[in-house]
């Protein structure tokens, strides 16, 4: 009886896989790697490399795919099938170590003056507690930045990611005023860091940057395509940033994996400035059960970075 049941399951799995392939659904069951999606577009070298999936299956992947895939501009408009990405940021754990900012800048070949991830020192009102607030792009489900773009250079994909095509962007900066979260940055000149990246441009990599265009946090779809979480999430020493597929109801910071819905309900997760109606895809866990004093965030900061927070109510109070 038991065996019968298990056998049936196997059959249904097989059937599903067939269906999945036909429908192009690409919900690669039992495979953490979603490299299969990029077969068609990434350059294949013909040389195969064995890689492991999350559940310990070995998969042969073309070696060219192990490099972060740079999909074409057309492909980058489509989104990774069957996925909807979400980020959860645990404010209780952030101590402004700034590793997320640095890893992101390195990964996207950004100059120091351009930060896709910004860390704010916020204090909601006089008597409430200050806290460190890492802020990526919220990849809103009602993205005003996308609505106002006159040329469709910024767009929202089926997987929820809002991307910018720097080869389409005319640099009118309307999206920068449209975004209520000051997420977007502008290339005010050609920064030398842009030249570090020798690969051809892809909106998914967000690199190399281009003078006179707007860029922002992109949830690193190129990393996602090889089964990795974004630079900021994997770089954070405190595991503040969780990332995952919301429809799979799972988020991970690389070491811990949580059921998204349970995490949000247990820890009273919320979205920043919910009243604006932008419907962000980034959730925050309130800064409770702090692991660090706020002061720790000033630890060994670069003086120039420290200077940023001098006008915050917290710093002003400390001075007195």
């Amino acid at each position: 009886m038991e065996e019968e049941l298990n056998k049936n399951q196997k059959n249904s799995r097989r059937q599903f896989l067939k269906k999945g392939i036909i429908a192009g659904a690409g919900v690669a069951i039992g495979s953490g790697l979603i490299a299969a999606y990029v077969d068609a577009t990434a350059t294949e070298t013909g040389e195969k490399v064995k890689v492991l999936t999350t559940d310990g299956e070995i998969m042969e992947v073309d070696k060219g795919l192990l490099k972060l895939p740079r999909v074409s501009r057309e492909e980058s408009h489509k989104g990774i099938p069957g996925r909807k990405f979400v980020m959860v940021i645990d404010l209780g754990k952030c101590k402004n170590a700034r590793k997320c900012v640095e890893a992101c800048q390195k990964g996207h070949h950004l100059p120091k003056s351009q930060e896709f991830m910004k860390v704010y020192l916020l204090q909601d009102s006089e008597k409430t507690s200050p806290y460190w607030f890492p802020k990526p792009c919220f990849h809103c489900d009602n993205p005003l930045c996308v609505s106002v773009c006159p040329v469709g250079a910024t767009y929202k994909r089926s997987d929820g990611i809002v991307l910018i095509d720097n080869e389409r962007c005319i640099g009118c900066k309307f999206c920068m005023t449209g975004c209520p979260y000051s997420t977007r940055v502008f290339a005010w000149k050609h920064y030398p860091e842009f030249d570090e990246d020798k690969e051809p441009y892809s909106p998914e990599a967000g690199s190399p940057g281009q003078e006179g265009t707007v860029s922002k946090c992109d949830f690193c779809p190129d990393l996602i395509r090889v089964g990795k979480i974004p630079y900021c999430a994997s770089a954070c020493p405190m595991g503040v940033i969780y990332f995952g597929d919301v429809d799979e109801d799972t988020v991970t910071n690389g070491t811990e994996t949580f059921q998204f819905s349970k995490l949000i309900s247990d820890r009273a997760g919320y979205r920043y400035l919910e009243t604006l109606g932008t419907r962000p895809c980034v959730y925050y866990l309130p800064p409770v059960d702090r692991q660090f004093e706020v002061e720790r965030g000033f630890g060994d900061l670069d003086p120039a970075i420290k200077e940023r927070y001098k006008d915050t109510p917290y710093s002003k109070k400390n001075k007195q």
């Binding site: 953490g32 999350t54 559940d55 990795k228 799979e248 799972t250």
Partner: peptide, 11 residues
């Protein structure tokens, strides 16, 4: 006991 997810195993 886990279920495999996109990036990791969910316990």
């Amino acid at each position: 006991i886990y279920v495999p997810r996109l990036f990791s195993l969910l316990k």
